[in-house]
């Protein structure tokens, strides 16, 4: 239970950063932290006490295994987050070039 709470706390760190920070890079980092919290959550509920790795090895008879599917899901979601982060960073670089500032509150030509 304590692990789930800590995972949730990590998620809240991300939410806090997203809501209060004004720096472009810090916003991107907050989103990344939220993503890691979700990935951790996925891994956590796949965990089973005293279970082995979900891989068939030669000559080893496996008892109970942890759930392998969430690990595959996490791998996919990491790839997706990598793509999102790369795109966000590219956009941030361009924004800084155009507006000459990292402050999100000063980047507002669009309104309404």
């Amino acid at each position: 239970m304590i692990l789930y709470l800590m995972c949730f706390a990590l998620f809240l760190v991300g939410v806090y950063g997203l809501l209060t920070k004004r720096d472009l890079i810090k916003l991107i980092l907050s989103i990344a932290v939220m993503g890691y919290a979700v990935n951790l959550f996925l891994i956590l509920f796949a965990y089973k006490k005293d279970a082995g790795i979900p891989i068939l090895l030669e000559g080893v008879v496996q008892g109970s295994m942890v759930d392998p599917l969430p690990q595959a899901l996490v791998l996919t979601s990491i790839v997706i987050e990598l793509g999102t982060t790369a795109l966000l960073v590219a956009l941030a670089i361009r924004l800084v070039q155009k507006y000459k500032t990292f402050d999100i509150t000063k980047i507002r030509r669009l309104f309404g």
Binding site: L88, L91, A92, R94, L95, K98, Y99, I107, R109, L110
Partner: peptide
């Protein structure tokens, strides 16, 4: 510039 802002 506006397009980058909207996309971000």
């Amino acid at each position: 510039a506006e397009e980058y802002e909207a996309a971000f």
